[in-house]
Design a protein around this nucleic acid. Structure first.
Ligand code: FES
Ligand code: FES
Lengths: 145, 145
DNA sequence: TATAAATAGGATAAAAATATCCGAAATAAG
DNA sequence: CTTATTTCGGATATTTTTATCCTATTTATA
């Protein structure tokens, strides 16, 4: 569904959000340990999120990654997915035709569009605040063990 | 969403189904031209579908690929997807945790499960017959141009 | 200002997905 | 039986994704 990069990006963002609420910046090392992802690769993804203004980075001693508290609720999963995987998932044809065009539909167009729109709606209506809260309260997890 | 291989596999299957209704076997060459896919790669995917008993191959002169007419309606998209992409799309965690486990859910588990189950339901309730018919009547297409 | 601690970012490497090539095996028809 | 045709399947190549490594740059603090 999503690329590995995107999966890591979402998990990392949730972890950063949780820590930002607690007033702590986190490093790629800590992040990758907590979400069980390759450190250097995760760092690259964080760079992309910074460039897209979804998270903040602070260089130098006592630096790290954070998200402004009052921005957390405004960051939707859709923003993260779009920043990393682009918007093929929102607009692309399910059978891989060059463009998804209602005037020249593939055989699964109408059925697929429903799923795709459902996913889009879900990603657009889910924000980092609620997800971070689920981690904080311990009802959800960012790694298997 | 699906791999290229899976997209080609679905498009090829629909094309084969349509031609099987018309009593014609088709070659990888004709298939790849009609669905706009790389020929040799498509041939490999067809082999996999044959091994999974979803389509039939006939070697030698006047051979080609076909689907028994009375099997076409019984072949669901879900069978093709499972044969090529496996069942991660049906069971896998949306955030890439090793397993999707209700007892140890990721933060998007419940929201994601709904989408995933919707996709599964769609793939399981869509068969090759209806899709081939849409191609035959010209209301849907297997390539862009 | 010097030092230590961090992220940024370019260069590479490894793995997986996508794609091509070619000879072997099978089969229909003459 | 021979020939032409066609799928099968192994080997290889290319591209994309995933992952690692190392140096430069930035910044807080002593
Ligand atoms: S044309 Fe294929 S999903 Fe719209
Ligand atoms: S645990 Fe992530 S989708 Fe179920």
């Amino acid at each position: 569904m999503f690329s590995k990069a995107c999966e890591y990006g979402i998990r990392a963002s949730i972890f950063i959000a949780k820590n930002s609420y607690e007033g702590r910046r986190v490093s790629p090392k800590e992040i990758s340990e907590e979400i069980n992802s390759p450190q250097a690769f995760t760092a690259k993804i964080l760079q992309a999120l910074v460039k897209n203004n979804l998270i903040n980075s602070v260089k130098g001693a006592y630096g790290g990654f954070e998200i402004e508290k009052d921005k957390i609720a405004a960051i939707k999963l859709s923003h993260i997915v779009k920043a990393i995987d682009g918007d093929n998932i929102y607009n692309g044809c399910g059978l891989g035709l060059e463009t998804c065009d209602e005037n020249h539909p593939c055989p699964v167009h109408y059925k697929f569009k429903e799923i795709r729109d459902g996913l889009k709606e879900m990603l657009e209506s889910t924000n980092l605040e609620e997800l971070a809260l689920d981690i904080k309260t311990g009802i959800a997890f960012l790694k298997t063990y």
